[in-house]
Design a protein around this nucleic acid. Structure first.
Lengths: 124, 124
DNA sequence: CAGAATCCATGAGGATACTG
DNA sequence: CAGTATCCTCATGGATTCTG
């Protein structure tokens, strides 16, 4: 298993990404507290604003709006508004977003599998 | 490839992790700005404090200390101090940390591959 | 070298209220 | 329903100084 985990520095000889490069920016978007949850939530299929609020428990409207805008600007999330009253908007992963999800989900699974053992069943 | 990306909710029927559960806590540790960089940096082998500072460009001493402590408390990073003068301390991944790295590195690779196209070659 | 401790600024992020 | 706007708090995180 070593050949897939110890070669990442070949791509980034300058360190773990030079500071202030595009990788760092994208990393912050993708790895942000809410970005991860929104992206993974959307792997379940297109969802509406209120769905996402329910899925990503604890997210505020401000953060949801901000997160969705960032991910949309990055081309990871697609926003589809229907001009009806009351308004209806669906969010979904773009092909690029789905591609990202394929490497993101294994990480989330790992966290889910190990969280209780590492952190403890309840934070209290 | 669908069967591996659309079933994550089976494990977490309550949403994308209920708020304030152990998964959220661990997720924040692992996905934190500097946590990722330190963990991935250590996939390259054991490293000293000053190595890590150089690898994770832009990290402050405070953040490096804080990050390492969290990751060590989580059992992801091993700290080995040699009682010599001047002090020498080596950090490395624990088996658990290596396990995590195997799902983390593909994500980092993805970010490295797509960052320029998504964000733009220079943030300026 | 490998940190600990302190101070301080910024902005991430929450609560609330309002709108189309 | 799907947001926007505003205010405000507190924690992230940088800079600096000190120590074993």
């Amino acid at each position: 298993m070593a050949e897939s985990t110890d070669t990442i520095f070949e791509q980034f000889p300058g360190g773990v990404f030079p500071a202030a490069c595009s990788s760092r920016v994208l990393l912050d978007h993708v790895m942000s507290k809410w970005g991860v949850l929104v992206l993974v939530s959307l792997t379940d299929g297109p969802q509406r604003w209120s769905d996402l609020r329910r899925r990503a428990q604890g997210i505020s409207e401000k953060m949801l709006a901000q997160t969705l805008k960032t991910l949309e600007a990055d081309g990871l999330v697609h926003r589809e508004q229907q001009p009806v009253m009351p308004p209806r908007v669906d969010y979904s992963l773009t092909p690029l977003g789905e591609d990202l999800a394929e490497v993101l989900v294994p990480l989330l699974r790992w966290v889910g599998r190990n969280a209780d053992a590492i952190i403890g069943p309840a934070t209290t």
